[in-house]
């Protein structure tokens, strides 16, 4: 990556407010120097700078001067065990409380997501993890940058991962859709078609794990039959329905025409 690209990524990064950012680090990108600058910005706007990364790499060492805390989550929080979002989030909450008692406004975390690699997660695992994290980041008012390297993550997986972050830095053009936490519910925007049906289903399953699941679909520009089928499948067996809030007349018509209105009573389309 050239210096110019790096500066553009930095310029687009606003460390002074909470957010959950997917940073796609290109081949040969100098992760450490950009991450250092991000942490510095976070610290100067009231955040407690924290760096995550794989203990095996050198990047974490390089960030030690700038970060108040450095950790390898796989080793330090999960004991090398499987990817357990709940265990991660307990730690995250504790770190936030500690930071506040120390006088910081929030956590400002930059995570080299290569730390996931020893756990060998599937793309689905990562999507589910990030989506759950999105909720926690919003709840804790944190600033979290998840850095995914194009050297270690496949292009299709990166598109999937970007889809479950509200913001994106670097990498290619944004993927066709986004599914992110929104207050107590979720927000779906963009275009869902057969090409992204798998990651969309994973996101839906994660969202549907909550007892109550409301998805704002006002910014959904397009959904095809395969996308509708994922909603019907995930919603089919629920006792409390998945609510698609702000469903357009077009969407409600498609839901009838496909027959899902009759076969998937666990989904409720709510018009404005």
């Amino acid at each position: 990556m050239s210096t110019i690209d790096r500066d553009i990524e930095l310029d687009a990064f606003d460390a002074s407010r909470p957010g959950h950012v997917c940073w796609v680090v290109g081949d040969g990108g100098s992760y450490a120097s950009t991450a250092t600058a991000m942490l510095r910005r976070g610290a100067s706007s009231g955040g407690k700078p924290v760096a995550f990364g794989p203990a095996s790499g050198r990047a974490l060492e390089l960030l030690a001067a700038e970060a108040a805390v450095t950790a390898d989550p796989a080793r330090d929080f999960l004991g090398g065990g499987p990817l357990e979002p709940d265990a991660m989030f307990r730690m995250f909450r504790a770190q936030t409380e500690l930071a506040r008692t120390e006088g910081h406004e929030r956590l400002c975390l930059v995570a080299d997501m290569d730390w996931l690699l020893p756990l060998e997660p599937s793309a689905e695992d990562i999507v589910a993890f990030e989506l759950a994290l999105d909720r926690v980041v919003a709840e804790l008012d944190a600033t979290v940058v998840c850095a995914y390297r194009t050297e270690t993550f496949a292009p299709d997986d990166l598109v999937d991962v970007c889809a479950v972050h509200p913001e994106q830095l670097g990498g290619h053009e944004p993927g066709p859709f986004r599914f992110v936490a929104d207050g107590s519910g979720w927000r779906l925007s963009g275009e869902v078609d057969n090409a992204v049906a798998d990651v969309f289903r994973t996101a839906l399953r994660t969202a549907a794990a909550d007892d109550s699941c409301t998805i704002d679909v006002r910014e959904l520009d397009f959904i095809d039959c395969a996308g509708l089928r994922q909603i019907a499948t995930v919603g089919r067996d629920r006792s409390r329905p998945i609510v698609l809030d702000g469903a357009s007349a077009h969407l409600r018509r498609l839901w009838e025409l496909t027959g899902f209105a009759a076969t998937a009573p666990g989904v409720e389309l709510r018009a404005d």
């Binding site: 078609d193 397009f222 095809d224 077009h250 498609l254």
Partner: peptide
Amino acid sequence: VDGDAALIVSELATNAVV
């Protein structure tokens, strides 16, 4: 054209690809 045209071309194109 409304959303119907987009949906139709999308489904037909998806059939060709898949």
